[in-house]
Nucleic acid binder design. Structure first.
Lengths: 189, 189
DNA sequence: TAGGAAATCTAGCGTTGCTAGGAACATGAA
DNA sequence: TTCATGTTCCTAGCAACGCTAGATTTCCTA
């Protein structure tokens, strides 16, 4: 009876151990270095144990991505809460860009590696919460435009900046001016 | 004397054979299916031959990406040339999005797989030409803003839409409205 | 036609994700 | 306490990967 619960507790504990280990390894050595073998050695279990928790390497990456999305949401919330009135957009956009440079491996997991995360209607709550944060910033600027569409375009613009900048495809010396241009595009006039 | 030239000609021929084979395999079966072994079998040479042309698998992907960028540039040019006056922006943006959905493997090679392409000052001509096409569309809309920064932001916005849409992270039913919003943001008022 | 250089192949190393099958363990009943 | 049962875990190994050393064949030149 009670042992069953203890086991489940220990299993859940080990599962988060795997996820955090994968994340730490990715952040220090990059995702290619996160192999099942190394992961198994790190958590001091054999490789098949990992497959009793996750369907495969991809599922582990997905789990890290989901955790990253939750953190990103929290970062958004904090940025919005700490912003001066009217400065919410700038604060959240800056938070997005800062997050991508501070946690490149996490960003990579979320936006280029994760493949098993369901989107759309049956997306996990974590994911909807992240979009809701963006919506809260962009929707007030919509005017007579569709607030959802505006939010998606705003997201795309910020995300594009983060992604292209991360790959070194934008001029570093224009970073501030890009920010100014972006804010100018969306600012309520 | 002349044999030397013939050999170089044949080598160049075989090199493009490799690149187009890699591209075709990627477009039909996805990039993970493009392995050195399969590529070698496809071009009917042994594996080491591939390494006499390219430093490794990554370099082959880079070559496909560069070829894709050249095509993308041509698509931009055609879209801009065929657009009605004032409709250049819409035409090029639509061309970008169409390209990403029509050639997902190429898009992936260019923006998430390529790692050896130099950017910035010493970027290949092909790459500068692509940006120049975008610049030609966005710069006229700059007004008193920095035209380079505006182009980069515009590129980021379109690219973000393409990338997020490709991963199924945007609502399909809002596609047209996103386009309208985006054009509205950049349109000269 | 013989010799040397260039091009190409065979074979194999180390690593990867993943899995089958057996060993060790904890659990509940007698 | 002892034994049977069911769960948990590990050892060992498969197929495939990128890549490379060294032998072999092919080609050109003299």
């Amino acid at each position: 009876m009670a042992t069953q619960q203890r086991r489940e507790r220990e299993r859940a504990q080990r599962e988060t151990l795997i996820v955090t280990a994968a994340r730490e390894m990715a952040e220090t050595d990059g995702w290619p270095a996160v192999t099942i073998r190394r992961l198994a050695e790190r958590i001091e279990y054999s490789q098949p144990v990992l497959y009793s928790h996750f369907a495969g390497r991809g599922a582990i990456i997905d789990a890290v991505a989901l955790q990253g999305i939750a953190e990103l949401t929290e970062v958004f919330r904090a940025a919005r809460a700490g912003a001066a009135p009217g400065g919410e957009l700038a604060a959240v956009v800056q938070a997005y860009l800062d997050f991508s440079t501070a946690h490149p491996a996490l960003f990579e997991a979320i936006f280029t590696l994760a493949e098993g995360l369901p989107f759309g209607a049956d997306a996990p709550e974590t994911l909807k919460a992240a979009f809701a944060e963006l919506f809260a910033v962009f929707a007030p600027l919509a005017g007579d435009r569709d607030p959802d569409a505006l939010t998606e375009v705003g997201w795309a613009a910020v995300h594009g900046l983060a992604a292209l900048d991360r790959d070194g495809r934008l001029r570093p010396d224009l970073r501030e001016q890009r920010m100014a241009v972006l804010l100018g595009l969306f600012a309520k006039d």
